[in-house]
Simulated scan of single mutants.
Amino acid sequence: MSGAAPSRDEVRIGIIGLGKILDQYLATFERLPNARVVAVADLNADRARDVAAQVGARALTVAELVDDPDVDVVLNLTIPAAHAEVAHAAIAAGKPVYSEKPLAASTAEAISVLDAGRTAGVRVGGAPDTVLGAGIQTARAAVDAGRIGTPTSATATFACPGHESWHPNPDFYYQVGGGPLLDMGPYYLTTLVTLLGEVTSVVGAAGRARPVRTIGSGPRAGETVEVAVPTHVTGVLTHASGALSTIVMSFDTAGTESPKIEVHGTQGSLSVPDPNRFDGEVRLRALGSPEWEVLEPTAGDIPGGRGIGVLDLIGAATDAQVRASGDLALHVLEVMEGVLGSAETGQAVTIASRVDRPDPVPLTHS
Results as ranks from 00 to 15, higher is better:
4 A>N: 03
4 A>M: 09
6 P>C: 02
9 D>N: 13
13 I>K: 06
14 G>Y: 07
21 I>M: 13
22 L>N: 04
26 L>F: 09
28 T>N: 09
31 R>M: 11
36 R>Y: 01
37 V>H: 02
37 V>W: 02
41 A>G: 10
42 D>N: 13
45 A>C: 03
55 V>K: 00
75 L>E: 15
78 T>C: 13
82 A>L: 11
85 E>P: 00
92 A>Y: 08
97 V>K: 02
114 L>Y: 08
132 L>E: 09
141 A>D: 09
141 A>T: 05
144 D>V: 06
144 D>W: 01
150 T>G: 04
155 T>W: 05
163 H>Q: 04
166 W>Y: 13
183 D>G: 03
189 L>C: 10
191 T>E: 02
193 V>I: 14
197 G>C: 00
204 G>D: 02
205 A>H: 10
212 V>M: 05
213 R>E: 07
221 A>D: 12
223 E>M: 15
225 V>N: 01
227 V>G: 00
228 A>R: 15
234 T>P: 03
240 A>T: 12
243 A>W: 01
249 M>I: 03
253 T>F: 04
256 T>C: 07
266 T>C: 08
268 G>H: 11
274 D>M: 11
277 R>T: 15
279 D>M: 08
293 E>Y: 12
310 V>W: 05
312 D>C: 05
315 G>D: 13
317 A>R: 14
319 D>E: 11
320 A>K: 14
330 L>C: 09
332 V>F: 01
333 L>E: 03
333 L>V: 04
335 V>D: 07
345 T>M: 13
350 T>I: 13
359 D>N: 09
